[in-house]
C-alpha cells in the first residue's frame, strides 16, 4: 500500500495542513517509511480477535445530571484570538 503524493495531498486537505511540493515529497517518503514498518502488523493473526479501545474493559463512568457553575464569560473568551460582543469572531476576508 504505497502512499502517493496524491494521497498526501488528500490527507493534508482533511487535516487542514498545507505543504509545498518539496515538503509533500518528504512527507510521502516519511509516511511510506513508517507505513512500511507498520506493514509488519499483517504478520499477526487477528482472526476473531476483539478490538481493545482501552488497555482493559472499562464501563459506565457516568455523571449525575446536576448543574455546576460554568466559567465566567471573560474566562471563556480569555484566549480568543478575536472577540466582539461576547462572541468569538472569525473575520470575513477582504480579497
Amino acid at each position: 500500500m504505497a502512499v502517493t503524493i496524491k494521497d498526501v495531498e488528500y490527507v493534508a486537505k482533511l487535516a487542514r495542513l498545507e505543504f509545498n511540493e518539496q515538503q509533500m515529497q518528504k512527507f510521502t517518503q516519511d509516511l511510506n517509511g513508517i507505513l512500511g514498518y507498520v506493514e509488519k502488523l499483517s504478520e499477526v493473526d487477528t482472526e476473531g480477535v476483539e478490538i481493545s479501545i482501552h488497555p482493559f474493559p472499562m464501563f459506565n463512568a457516568l455523571r449525575e445530571d446536576i448543574v455546576r457553575p460554568s466559567l465566567d464569560r471573560e474566562e471563556a473568551l480569555l484566549n480568543a484570538p478575536e472577540k466582539e460582543d461576547n462572541l468569538f469572531k472569525v473575520p470575513k476576508v477582504i480579497e
Binding site: S70, L71, R73, A76, L77, D85, N86, L87, F88
Partner: peptide
C-alpha cells in the same frame, strides 16, 4: 442569558 456564559473547558 448572555452569549458564551454556559460554557466550561469541556464544552469549549
Amino acid at each position: 442569558g448572555d452569549t458564551n456564559n454556559h460554557c466550561c473547558p469541556v464544552c469549549l
